[in-house]
Structure formats: structure tokens, C-alpha cells
């Protein structure tokens, strides 16, 4: 703060002082406007990034919802088409006339109904297992993966193998299920699209992360292709993988080896994920 009072003296205008001050003020205003415009530019850029991220989230969310609906439809179809007719048939065997039938016929009807109910139980069990594999729940990811790969190997069309190097402490069941689903989807894609001769899954870990790597010698995709497919509205599988990875706070890398003989897909999952 500067205090001055008006005097009675007059003198010609001092241009040096006037223009000097104006120059200083212009410089100041220049700095201020530069800061404002720079920040506006940064905010606009950030908004665009946020919008892109929101769009991606929306696509993932839609994919996830669509996937859930498809899964429900599949379960509904299984129950309606398989379990429903079986139970209806069992009911036919156990109708009101059963008491009026010959004892031998009665026994035959009861036996047939029992057979059908056993089939229905087996069907329901299969549906339940497809939702939550019992091996995974009871014995963990390593056993569940071995089980899955053994089944693939048993088909004889593909050589599938699993090797877990360091899985002494199990991840949480929810994490294991998500990893299982991701690998299941990846393996499914490899079987369907890649025309591979072998699939090999390896697991390893360090203090903070668990790593899962799938090798195969078929036609695969690389990271840029995965990112591109992830942003298009068609196709559910890769989006489900991306959304599950996001839930796990993990990362996924699609690579091809330098000799171009096989593809690698690596999952990086944090051990202390808040999930």
C-alpha cells in the first residue's frame, strides 16, 4: 500500500514512467492470459480423455449386462428344454393310474421315474457346475485349471498343459473365479478361432502380483488389436475379459514372440486387490 497526496505542482507527462509501467502491466497480463488459456486447454483435453474413458466404461458395462442376460437365457433354456420335459415325463410315470396298475408295471414305472429324476438331478448339477465349478470352489484355481486343461486334452484335437510354479497361497475365491473365467474365455477363443496345435498355461508370482501366461501356436491377436476390438460395439468375449480384468485391478498383455511362432497372453493380477 502506498500513500500519497496531491500536490499543487505541475509538470509535463513523464512518458518513460508511463510506458515503463504500461510495459510491466502488459507483461503481467500476458502471463495471466497465458496461464488461463493453457489451463483451459488442459481442462478441455482432460474432459475429452474422461469422455473417452466414460464411453469405454459404458461399452464394458453394456457388454457385461448383455453377457449376464445371455447367461440367464442359457440357464433358462437349459431348465426349460432339458429339466422341464424330464420332470414332466417323470410325472407321467407317476400319474393317478399308477395305483390301479399291476405291481410289476408299478415297479417299472417307479424305476423309470427314478431314472428320469436322476437324469434331471445330473442336468441341474451340470448347470450349477457351469456357474461355479466345484473343483474351483473346493480345491482352488490350480486344480480347476488342471481339470479344464485335462478335458481339453482328452478331446485329442489339442495338446493342452498347465504348470503352476508358485501358488502356495490361494487368492480369494472371487478373484479365482474371475481369473478362471478369463482363462476359460481365452482358451475358448483359442479353440474357436486360432486353429492352434497346443495351449500351455503357466503361473508364477512375486511379492505383489500373480502372473498367468497362455502360450499357443495358432492365429492370435496383439495388444493394439485387443484395444481396438475392445472399443467396437460388437463382440462380448473380449469386453468381458476387459471388465473382469478391471474388477481385479489387473492388466492383460497380448503379444507375439519375436520369432512369430506363438502368441502369448499374460495376466497380471495384484495379490492385495481390494476386490
Amino acid at each position: 500500500m502506498i500513500f500519497l497526496q496531491v500536490t499543487t505542482n505541475t509538470s509535463p507527462i513523464n512518458y518513460v514512467m508511463l510506458f515503463g509501467t504500461l510495459a510491466m502491466l502488459s507483461l503481467t497480463l500476458g502471463i495471466v492470459f497465458f496461464v488461463i488459456f493453457h489451463q483451459r486447454k488442459v481442462i478441455r483435453f482432460n474432459d475429452q480423455l474422461k469422455k473417452l474413458e466414460d464411453d469405454k466404461q459404458q461399452i464394458l458395462l453394456n457388454a457385461s449386462i448383455k453377457f449376464q442376460e445371455e447367461e440367464r437365457n442359457r440357464i433358462a433354456a437349459d431348465l426349460h428344454d432339458d429339466v422341464g420335459p424330464l420332470l414332466a415325463t417323470a410325472r407321467l410315470y407317476l400319474n393317478e393310474n399308477l395305483v390301479n396298475q399291476e405291481p410289476a408295471a408299478q415297479l417299472q414305472s417307479i424305476f423309470s421315474a427314478k431314472q428320469i429324476i436322476d437324469d434331471a438331478i445330473q442336468l441341474i448339477r451340470n448347470i450349477s457346475h457351469s456357474m461355479m465349478p466345484p473343483t474351483l470352489k473346493n480345491f482352488g484355481l490350480e486344480s480347476a485349471m488342471s481339470d479344464l486343461f485335462q478335458k481339453i486334452n482328452g478331446s485329442g484335437t489339442l495338446n493342452a498343459s498347465v504348470r503352476f510354479h508358485d501358488y502356495r497361497t490361494r487368492l480369494k475365491l472371487e478373484q479365482e473365479l474371475l481369473i478362471f473365467r478369463i482363462i476359460q474365455e481365452l482358451v475358448n477363443n483359442i479353440i474357436k478361432h486360432s486353429n492352434a496345435g497346443f495351449i500351455h498355461l503357466t503361473q508364477n508370482a512375486n511379492a505383489t502380483h500373480s502372473y498367468f501366461r497362455l502360450h499357443h501356436d495358432g492365429q492370435g491377436i496383439v495388444q493394439t488389436e485387443f484395444d481396438r476390438l475392445n472399443h467396437v460395439s460388437t463382440g462380448l468375449g473380449l469386453k468381458n475379459i476387459a471388465s473382469r480384468i478391471k474388477v481385479l485391478n489387473g492388466r492383460i498383455f497380448f503379444e507375439i514372440d519375436p520369432s512369430h511362432t506363438y502368441y502369448k497372453v499374460t495376466l497380471e493380477i495384484p495379490k492385495d486387490s481390494t476386490y
Partner: peptide, 25 residues
């Protein structure tokens, strides 16, 4: 501060000149 900086520097030698204070003011 940037506006008064030049004024203050310039005033050191010119402050007692007649009429300077009014322009300064």
C-alpha cells in the same frame, strides 16, 4: 506489484522533481 515495481525503481531518482508525485499518484 508489477505495476508499482517500475514506478518505485524510477522514483528513486525522480521523486522530488516537481509534479512527479501527481503522475505517480
Amino acid at each position: 506489484f508489477s505495476g508499482s515495481f517500475f514506478l518505485i525503481l524510477y522514483s528513486k531518482t525522480n521523486f522530488n522533481k516537481p509534479g512527479f508525485r501527481d503522475q505517480f499518484l
